[in-house]
Design a protein around this nucleic acid. Structure first.
Lengths: 254, 254
DNA sequence: TAGATTGTTAATCGATTAACAATC
DNA sequence: TAGATTGTTAATCGATTAACAATC
């Protein structure tokens, strides 16, 4: 991370300023809450995608108004969201795209490679392996595992499928041969296997779990975990459909 | 656009209370806010899963305390969440599991079959097809489509893969042969194809779109849409990892 | 300059949590 | 009964939106 002059170092506590690239206000807040506004963090990937696609068109700057328009939001919200990355723009011009991409990627930790093991090479696991998007987010799936003996030795996306029992050994290999540490475990195994897989991954040194199994995992406090619940959005959708059905039939009656 | 909660629903009138199976209080609230609390709707599927698994153990009642414990939440929140379905419990006993399952499923619209077309039979599309969970949520994928000529005619999960151009014709067939209407389009196609696929689906009569493509779709106001963004949770996870890294190194310095 | 746009403080809105009476 | 639990109102918290000065 470079300091290109626009940085607000003087307003930051010396140490954090460099490390976190955060405005002082947010640093102070984080001291207490220990958390950034999650909704903002969640919106950043969409912004980043748009910004990159605008960059492809040869543009070098972009305004909040433009981003907000795209997503049907207000420009103030976009500005607030971008602010958590520490970026600053210029009135009338907007934000420099190069700076913005860098700031978001750094803030999300996407400029750093995340070494991961993926367990459960079904359709979902394969989807994640084959989607190039995640590679551009720094995700490097080092090894893949599956409990199905029939799959062992098969190659998916250039990776040999190994037995789940090999997890500890492969983590050791990663450490000793490459000096890398296991950063993340991606669990795309069925629910009934998820907890034991998680235990193995944590034991092997994983500091983060990206869990697709529809089950609440028990994990040590120092392991961060995100659960992906596909049913969540399905529920919102079908609930809205039902509300609409009722409203329409209601209107028809009146 | 659809899912930012600002989609201006028509206000509810008292009579709707029965149709929607909502407590009057919430109906009155909805008159103003025009929306049910989305976070609550999103948590219901997890509760439902737990409740069903508890039912398997032969239990007939469950308390909020028990549910809250499982998910590390407060019992008040669970109670509030369940309340939106219109269910009532009994002090000391809790909620009747049979009633609860029925109330949640009805509220989410999962007791009704949702007839859907799925477009894009890659790994992600196949994952959705093969995951039995969604069938239990009422999802019935009638037909599947793909743009890849090599896949045409192949069978996935008992369904023949058809060309995207067949969507209108197949919707007509569905309507005329079975009397069913197309309820939902599931888009698991790549981003560049998503908008044209959405247009086709809407034209064919789809009233809802479940979109996995990382792109903001332009849709008529009366079509409900939910976007699944896998990058969202990845962003939260890697951001937390980075925060933690800095906090730890920070601690080490001091 | 004029007007678009940023950054920030204050106001509003919505969701969560606290408090507590009702009740099985 | 006593105590666990529900249902509901009030208080708090956090996120969004409004207002507006600064500035390019």
């Amino acid at each position: 991370m470079q300091n290109n002059g626009r940085s607000c170092e003087r307003s930051l506590r010396p140490r954090d300023a460099k490390n976190l690239n955060l405005p002082r206000k947010l640093v102070m807040q984080a001291q207490h809450s220990h958390n950034l506004p999650t909704p903002s963090v969640q919106r950043l990937p969409s912004y980043l995608r748009l910004i990159k696609s605008v960059r492809e068109c040869g543009e070098t700057a972009i305004s909040c108004t433009r981003i907000a328009e795209e997503f049907g939001q207000t420009s103030v919200q976009v500005r607030k969201d971008l602010a958590i990355t520490g970026i600053t723009g210029r009135p009338k011009i907007g934000y420099q795209i190069a700076d913005l991409v860098e700031a978001i990627e750094e803030f999300l930790g996407w400029n750093v490679t995340t070494h991961a093991f993926l367990v459960g090479v079904g359709n979902l696991g394969s989807a994640i392996l084959n989607y190039e998007g995640f590679a551009s987010h720094g995700l490097n799936v080092v090894d893949v595992f599956d409990a199905n003996p029939k799959l062992l030795g098969t190659v998916v996306n250039g990776r040999v499928i190994r037995p789940v029992a090999d997890i500890p050994e492969r983590a050791k290999t990663l450490r000793e041969k490459t000096g890398k540490t296991l950063d993340m475990g991606v669990i795309t195994a069925p629910a009934h296997a998820a907890q034991s897989v998680a235990d193995l991954l944590v034991k092997a040194g994983a500091r983060a779990i990206w869990n697709y199994a529809p089950i609440q995992l028990e994990l040590p406090d120092d392991v961060v975990c995100e659960n992906v619940k596909l049913s969540e959005s399905f529920a919102v959708l079908t609930n809205r459909m039902r509300m609409r059905r009722h409203r329409v039939s209601d209107r028809a009656q009146s």
